[in-house]
Design a protein around this nucleic acid. Structure first.
Length: 267
DNA sequence: TTGTGTTTTATTGCCTCC
DNA sequence: GGAGGCAATAAAACACAA
């Protein structure tokens, strides 16, 4: 390793050496460096005499680098006056000091970018994991909703079928009571399906937003539709049920928010 | 010893500021 | 217009495995 100064100044190893570095070991190192530097200078002289250019790059000594590093910790840029003074102290050309600080800033920037990248990547990974979890939850809820829609449609079809069957024997005097019972039972069956399904839906999901379905659906009591009516209202109920049986199949639409207008207007 | 990858020193060209 | 900074790059020095 060549630690000789490119300036060739012997002052470099004398004026800048901190007191703690002037032990016997370092003196030995410096004398070797001096010798190497002198040898190098001799060689340069010979080459110059021979008319050859001496463009060899030379690394700064450990002492020079340490001194520069220490200053860099405090200030990443040096004023022109400081630069000249520092160059004199270190036995370097002011240009060398400027280049060293320039390269040092570039190295610092690269390291900083690497650090920033690590932090950003960690954030990105955490965010991606979160997104994937939400995506899975969304998929599960969508599938559950699809099943519920199918189940509700199935019940609606059955209910409509029952009512149509009833139309065939509407002249029967005793049919009113039977119809009332059937509607009551079917309505309960239909709504209990929907209601219980939504309770399952609410409990199966960990997200808070899914509980809202349960909250807005819970007041829905089948008996409120049929159970407390006078017999004179039953025909109207039948007509309404024919409509709502069709409508209820589209009630839980994913694309459109459910409307409870039909429920509130009936009260 | 040698080939290869990395680090350090230095140059070049462009840009900004005074 | 000159000085200085920065990015890109060259080239020498160095480290290290085979």
């Amino acid at each position: 390793m060549n630690h000789s100064s490119s300036s060739g100044s012997m002052d470099a190893f004398i004026s800048i050496s901190p007191p703690e570095e002037k032990d016997s070991k370092n003196e030995e190192v410096y004398s070797r460096e001096f010798q190497a530097m002198l040898d190098g200078l001799e060689e340069e002289d010979k080459l110059e005499e021979a008319g050859q250019a001496t463009e060899k790059k030379k690394r700064l000594s450990m002492v020079q680098v340490k001194a520069l590093e220490k200053i860099f910790e405090v200030e990443s840029k040096v004023e022109p006056d400081r630069k000249v003074k520092l160059a004199e102290e270190l036995g370097l050309q002011p240009r060398q000091v400027a280049i060293w600080f320039q390269n040092r800033r570039a190295r610092w920037k690269t390291k900083q970018l690497e650090k920033d990248y690590v932090v950003l990547k960690a954030n990105y990974d955490a965010l991606k994991l979160d997104y994937n979890n939400l995506q899975q939850e969304n998929d599960a809820l969508t599938a559950e909703l699809r099943d519920l829609k199918a189940k509700v449609k199935e019940d609606c079809d059955k209910f409509s079928e029952k009512i149509k069957d009833h139309d065939l024997c509407e002249n029967d005097d005793d049919s009113t009571g039977i119809v009332k019972e059937e509607i009551d039972v079917n309505a309960q069956l239909l709504m209990s399906h929907a209601s219980s399904s939504f309770q399952v839906n609410g409990s199966s999901s960990s997200s808070d937003s899914s509980n809202h379905h349960h909250q807005w659906f819970q007041p829905f009591e089948p008996r409120m539709i049929v159970g407390n009516m006078h017999q004179s209202q039953l025909v109207k109920v039948e007509e309404q049920c024919m409509i709502t049986a069709e409508e209820c199949c589209n009630f839980f639409s994913v694309d459109q928010a459910p409307s409870l207008q039909w429920y509130f207007t009936g009260q």
